[in-house]
Design a binder for these strands. Structure first.
Length: 364
DNA sequence: AATAGTGTCAACCGCCCCAGC
DNA sequence: AGCTGGGGCGGTTGACACTAT
């Protein structure tokens, strides 16, 4: 049983808005405001439209100072940075780009930016491979092309790694830099990681790889800290380096997230098995930011690690988070299913960290 | 010129959150 | 405390435009 529709579907016009409808809506709102009731608004104006449709039309097209198209490189970079950081939270991203709407940005990302990103990435990978082999693609035989494709396939994993690196560099107290938080790997996981290594992933930079070489006791320690068995559902709130406290139930965890959003860098990692993912799935995770990357755990025991690390960040860094805090002061929606914010990403993007990520993603 | 394929984007859908009762 | 309904959001759809064959 679903909830009742917000309006009488039969009496409601759908589809593109006519200039007359636009004019009516615009004139009314400019004169009277929305009255904080979109549902009642169309009746007042005499529009046969759903209130939500009116709201959308106003917010996306009719309100003043809306920009359409013509995204600048600066805007591209901001969108990418924020997307990497917080995922598909378009309204938050839009709030950082004056005149842009969430719908516009969402469309732009889905239709152009995402492809631009992947295209550059693959081109760069291809160039490197050709450079390394000293061969021209035209000279490649079928076998070599397969090899190239294989390497391109690995690029998704590399992007995964770059994504992790970015997170790590931005947040020195992150999960990736805190071995005590790394779960013990199963033999299958170890095999997977070894495969990754064999395919050229840099073990020094890979927390995944590092975790299999870490002392097994760390994994046991992880379980002990949480007071539960390995691979059991575990929530941590990391308060200081190397210290973590378990958060036993989901509601508590959710409260921590809600409370900290905007003020502190609460970050969640939803950890699932990697070896089960195909390249397309990993691509999907990265590009669609499903927020689920990391180590293998039974699906029913999804592990969530939270980071509450802004306490450790100096005031100067905090000052740069104003835009984020301000935004979240009015955006208290749950972030329970997405990557938390690395709020200094914009600043960092001008200081080299973004460039690291941009090894393969540079949009310029 | 006709058709198929692809890209773009406005608009809708349905879910979630939260204030008000 | 529980329910209801509106606002807000992200995901998806479908119409139209453009390009390739």
């Amino acid at each position: 049983m679903g909830r009742a529709p917000c309006c009488e579907k039969a009496n409601v016009k759908k589809g593109p808005w006519s200039p007359e409808e636009d004019a009516k809506l615009k004139a009314y709102i400019e004169e009277n405001g929305t009255g904080n009731n979109w549902i009642a608004l169309p009746q007042k104006i005499g529009l046969k439209r759903c209130g939500k449709s009116c709201r959308l039309r106003w917010l996306n097209y009719l309100r003043p100072n809306i920009k359409h198209g013509g995204f600048t490189e600066e805007e591209d970079n901001i969108i990418c940075s924020l997307y990497i950081s917080i995922g598909s939270r378009w309204s938050i991203i839009a709030a950082q780009l004056p005149g842009r709407t969430d719908n516009d940005i969402k469309n732009y990302w889905n239709t152009r930016l995402k492809k631009k990103l992947l295209g550059k990435r693959k081109q760069t990978q291809m160039n490197r491979l050709l450079l390394a082999s000293g061969q021209d693609l035209k000279e490649s035989n079928g076998l070599e092309e397969n090899s190239l494709l294989q390497n391109l396939s690995n690029s998704a994993l590399e992007r995964l790694q770059l994504h992790m690196q970015l997170q790590t560099q931005q947040n020195p107290l992150s999960f990736y830099n805190n071995p005590s938080l790394w779960p013990k790997l199963t033999p299958l996981q170890q095999k997977m990681i070894q495969t990754l290594q064999a395919n050229g992933l840099n073990q020094n930079q890979s927390p995944l790889y590092a975790s299999i070489n870490s002392n097994e006791n760390q994994a046991h320690e992880l379980g002990q800290k949480s007071g539960i068995n390995e691979f059991a559902s575990t929530n941590f709130k990391v308060n200081e380096v190397g210290k973590s406290t378990p958060i036993d139930d989901f509601d508590n965890k959710k409260n921590v997230v809600d409370k900290n959003v905007g003020q502190e860098n609460t970050r969640e990692l939803h950890i699932q098995g990697v070896q089960d993912f195909t390249q397309l799935e990993i691509d999907d995770m990265i590009l669609n930011n499903k927020g689920s990357i990391g180590l293998n755990l039974p699906s029913e025991n999804q592990q969530i690690v939270e980071f509450d690390c802004f306490n450790e960040i100096d005031d100067g860094s905090r000052d740069n988070l104003g835009w984020w805090s301000n935004d979240f002061d009015t955006n208290t929606t749950s972030s329970s299913n997405s990557w938390g914010s690395s709020s200094n990403i914009l600043q960092n993007s001008h200081e080299g960290i973004y460039q690291d990520y941009a090894l393969g993603y540079n949009l310029q």
